[in-house]
Amino acid sequence: MELLVASGVGVLTAGGVWLILQGRSFSVILGLALLSYAVNLFIFASGRLAIGLPPILTKSTTGYTDPLTQALVLTAIVISFGMTAVIVVMALGAFLETGSDRVDIDDDSRDGL
């Protein structure tokens, strides 16, 4: 399972970074969404993987997975929603204000990479 999760995190990160580099506000938002998944999975997985050991106290279980990373990620998910919402409205405002959805003001004069 470790390999699957790690490669999943890798794929999500790569996709997120690529989308962010596309320079359009909507693709930046999508890219940030993917990066949020990747980061949340990363933090969650740093508590190590466990199957069938939810952190709910019961008498009939053999152990529990790490609850702390879960608590961290839970709030992170909600916060990342807040962040996405702010960026969406910012992107919307920028597009409505300027008529362009590029994230760089003058894209062509700065053909750096």
């Binding site: 790569a14 740093s46 790490d66």
Partner: peptide, 30 residues
């Protein structure tokens, strides 16, 4: 861009794989 993204993906994936395949270095507070 694809090269940069692939590098970032490999880095993140490799790091978490290395983490998950090793035990905790210190006792956790879990």
């Amino acid at each position: 861009h694809a090269v940069i993204a692939a590098g970032a993906g490999l880095g993140a994936g490799g790091l978490i794989h290395a983490l998950m395949t090793r035990d905790f270095a210190f006792p956790t507070i879990a």
